[in-house]
Nucleic acid binder design. Structure first.
Lengths: 214, 214
DNA sequence: ACCACCTTGTGATTGTTTTCACAATCCATT
DNA sequence: AATGGATTGTGAAAACAATCACAAGGTGGT
């Protein structure tokens, strides 16, 4: 699948790429330079054919009879995920969750940088959260231009989420990661990803009920 | 699909139940007692047949020609998700993310209660985080029995996650919600759910790269 | 009691994702 | 340069999930 045009890549495939990145990173640190799909998949609890199929959507990265060059594949996955772009992130809502995310080490590790926090609580404005300053939401547009941020993370109450979303879009953000438990209406060209923390734990709760019931 | 035996319910179906719960809750608060699948689905941006199919896995809750009784369906979904059980949660790791989750209003709203935090940092032991006390990890087993907790949430570094998981299982927890970016090995009977925050934002980053590249 | 209308519940269909299985091909050794 | 052993890349098959389309069954009006 070298040439494409507009191949549709399964969402599930993209979700697995960060896992591949992590395993490769580990092997890389251990000084291992070549890895087979079988070993890598075993590490992740998936099948080797799924791993190979996933990678095949993006190109031919392996060497038959040998496996994959760790640092080469690492570079490829970084590029696919945009990790080579050093994307900057704005977090809107400097509450518990927002500030926790601002300090989340997983971001830096994946080429992402939380560059500013925004809130409307005057008591918080001007404070530093780790190395990140908290600005008033009214400065969103200015700061976006100044700091070159691309992704807005919404850690705000559901009741104001749609309203803030419109501000975010007006400010020129192209991608939104929404933690508010509400369906946001956005124009076609905006990339929206919802993260609903309640889903995960209710899924657990459901499985608990099922298991104990049987 | 009234009788079953062991019908397999799609994971995707279970993930949508919390959404249904929210919409129903809103309608309930507005005093609306009957709702059609069409209206409910429109609210969520899915098809009405998907909603009906999802519900059909659990029983026949609707009335043909009319729709669904809001408070009745609400009760059913609560039961399916185990929200009627008032499940108690232990959070292991009283860092930024752990304490943020301890105060997350979404839990209480869905019949879940964070009952204790655990850490190994002596400076944190005994402190209150909101209404929740922080205990030393060595007390996990005692406190579990004392407080009747069922679900363990892991907000700890990946490097210690497997080790802590074994403690958690030894303490008798049956369900684990894991935020550490690592694959945990658990026995068959343990219910494990991984929540990888990096996946969401790297998905966004990937879509950004694709869109701008085309 | 009948009719017109509405909405559910669900087989059948279509679409998507995973798994299978093997030809293609690369490496190492002689 | 030929052979044996290994592992990729990928069509084809299977499994899974979403959508369609309509019979079944309910409501309200006359």
């Amino acid at each position: 699948m070298l040439s494409d045009g507009m191949v549709v890549i399964p969402q599930a495939t993209i979700s697995r790429l960060p896992l591949y990145f992590r395993v490769l990173n580990e092997y890389n640190h251990l000084g291992i330079s070549v890895i087979s799909s079988e070993e890598m998949a075993g590490n992740l609890g998936i099948t080797s054919s799924q791993l190979r199929k996933d990678l095949s959507y993006f190109g031919d990265f392996g060497i038959r009879g040998t496996g994959y060059d760790v640092s080469d594949l690492l570079k490829q996955i970084k590029e696919i995920l945009g990790m080579d772009k050093n994307r900057r992130i704005a977090i809107i809502g400097a509450g518990k969750l927002g500030t926790a995310l601002a300090g989340y080490p997983g971001f830096k590790m994946h080429g992402l940088e939380v560059t500013a926090l925004f809130d409307i609580d005057e008591a918080k404005i001007g404070q530093q959260e780790g190395k990140v300053e908290i600005f008033h939401l009214s400065e969103l547009s200015n700061k976006k231009r100044e700091l070159g941020m691309e992704i807005a993370v919404l850690t705000i109450p559901a009741s104001v989420a749609q309203q803030v979303t419109e501000l975010v879009i007006k400010a020129g953000f192209k991608a939104i990661w929404n933690f508010a438990p509400v369906r946001l209406e956005v124009p076609e060209h905006i990339i929206l990803q919802n993260e609903d923390l309640v889903v995960g734990i209710l899924t657990l709760s459901h499985h608990l009920s099922r298991k104990l019931g049987s």
